[in-house]
């Protein structure tokens, strides 16, 4: 297996904070691997995701993507390889533009030689028929579920290597949330995309993740492989 993401001896402190939020943390994620990051509020889950998404610089330590140090990857390349999606869909979609225009923009980010393939890939997608009916609708006017479907269909369009999800289903009803999670897990496996998901939904962590990282404030993160013998109660206890 190839190490898609390698976090080596990571330490991170916010400016003027007394103790580091993350200290000497090492972690690897392989191709097609699905990892859930859980923990209480303030434990550093979202901060970790932002460091891996190259939005925050680590205080100490190095991060590699496909064995290339982050510092050697250009912003444009990073934008293509790593897709970061949050519950704030206005941070992931162009709200005042139509569905079709959003798709066109996401296709535009690809090298010219891959654009035709991306359109074909999109048309073969699970939700294509549903999205096609919404082509001329402005994204701001879509329901939350429709926006999520669009967002995830677009996320896989550009063949990313790593997908970062930050509590992305927290505003959806349970039915839609399960449908979206299955779609992500299946598509990520098919297209060999690594997924790092921060969530408060322990059920989702148990159901979809290959491994789970538990974060606690002031303590080193614990990494456990999910062999599907773990129970919800065990997880609840672990994060306390």
């Amino acid at each position: 297996m190839i190490d898609l993401l390698k976090v080596d001896d990571l330490t991170f402190s916010y400016p003027r904070s007394i103790a580091p939020l993350l200290q000497n943390f090492s972690f690897t994620l392989q191709e097609s691997e699905f990892c859930a990051v859980i923990g209480q509020n303030g434990s550093g889950k979202s901060t970790f995701l932002k460091i891996v998404g190259n939005r925050y610089q680590p205080t100490h330590g190095r991060i590699y993507l496909n064995s290339i140090p982050f510092s050697h990857i250009s912003d444009i390349q990073m934008g293509r390889w790593v897709i970061s999606l949050t519950q704030r869909m206005d941070q992931c979609l162009f709200f005042p533009m139509t569905v079709k225009e959003n798709i066109e923009i996401w296709v535009e980010r690809l090298p010219a030689t891959q654009r035709q393939d991306a359109w074909e890939l999109f048309e073969q997608g699970h939700y294509f028929e549903r999205l096609k009916k919404l082509y001329d609708r402005v994204v701001a006017g879509l329901s939350g579920g429709e926006q999520q479907i669009l967002m995830f269909s677009l996320a896989f369009l550009s063949r990313p290597k790593l997908l970062l999800l930050d509590e992305h289903t927290s505003q959806l009803d349970p039915q839609m949330s399960t449908a979206i999670m299955s779609h992500i897990a299946n598509t990520a496996r098919e297209r060999r995309v690594g997924v790092l998901m921060v969530t408060h939904n322990l059920q989702h962590a148990l159901e979809y993740a290959d491994k789970i990282v538990i974060m606690k404030e002031g303590l080193a993160p614990i990494e456990i492989m999910n062999d599907h013998t773990l129970t919800l109660d065990q997880l609840r206890l672990a994060i306390l």
Binding site: Q91, P96, I105
Partner: peptide
């Protein structure tokens, strides 16, 4: 199209790797 995207969400355009 990309100029309009710039106007609507500059940060997202940067995040997506557009110049």
């Amino acid at each position: 199209l990309l100029m309009r995207a710039f106007g609507h969400n500059y940060d997202l355009l940067i995040k997506m790797g557009f110049p």
